[in-house]
Amino acid sequence: MLKYALKRIVIAVITLFILISAVFVMVRLLPGDPFTDPKVPEATQEKMREYYGLNEPLYKQYLTYMDNLLHGDLGYSLRTQGRTVNEIISSAFPYSIDLGIRALVFAVVAGLLLGIVAALNQNKFLDHFSMAVAVIGISIPSFIIGSVFQYIFSVKLGILPVARWDSFASTILPTFALGLGSVATIARLMRTSMLEVVNEDFIKTAKAKGLNKREITLNHQLRNSMLPVITVMGPMVATLLTGTFVIENIFAIPGLGRHYVISIQTLDYPLILGMTIVYSVFLVLMQLVVDLVYGLIDPRIKLR
């Protein structure tokens, strides 16, 4: 297991290295230039490029960047004066993580419950109800859900603030809006998986052993149904915790989400790279965690 984890970490580092290098080159290939502005004289633009080292040959910029990166320095953002990418990310990340964890807890709890209830009541009312909720959650994009929530709970009912992240009440709508899609995904997976597991040999064995239904469901069926859910949890955690543009934008939450979009729009090269690194490190890490958890849950899986 330890050997396996080490192997995966080495692979992860290599993956990240290739990714960062590729993104480094690719953003430079984007048309335009971060300091292009018809109102600003060429000489001033040149000066700014010089200041940020963008006039150096690309390989030199790359070496400098990699060197700094090894020291944990992601460089200066080109858009804001004097703010480093490290500062921007470390001030925004807590918001995204906070929102992400809330949404995740909501998604896991509600998703599992819905899925389990649906599976135990297959083809009955509760099943149809749960799956209806799931279909709605999957098919309606989050920006619509967010706006509708705002309209109903804030403008019409006036019980929650429209946006911003400054009180517990203000966290409720974004949490639900962000989590709903994942609730749906988890619920559907859980239901399918529960129904599949019912026919497995070990359930029959358990029945033959004379265990009662509750014990079978809790100890055998549930546990073994979790595998597919765990599989999707990796990318899900990474996505929820590293910020989403749509929800953060609608609810004016100062998280990481907007930087994914704005950094590309403004060709803020260091910030684009910083965001890439944050997201990919998280994603790779979560995948690793998922793989390790597999081994814990299903003893049949041997990690090598």
């Binding site: 509600a110 603030p161 400054d166």
Partner: peptide, 20 residues
């Protein structure tokens, strides 16, 4: 724990109109 979290979330839904 899961039930507590759920109940807590639900309660929260009814609670706060303080900051609007």
């Amino acid at each position: 724990i899961l039930s507590l979290v759920l109940v807590f979330t639900l309660f929260a839904g009814c609670g706060g109109d303080s900051s609007s």
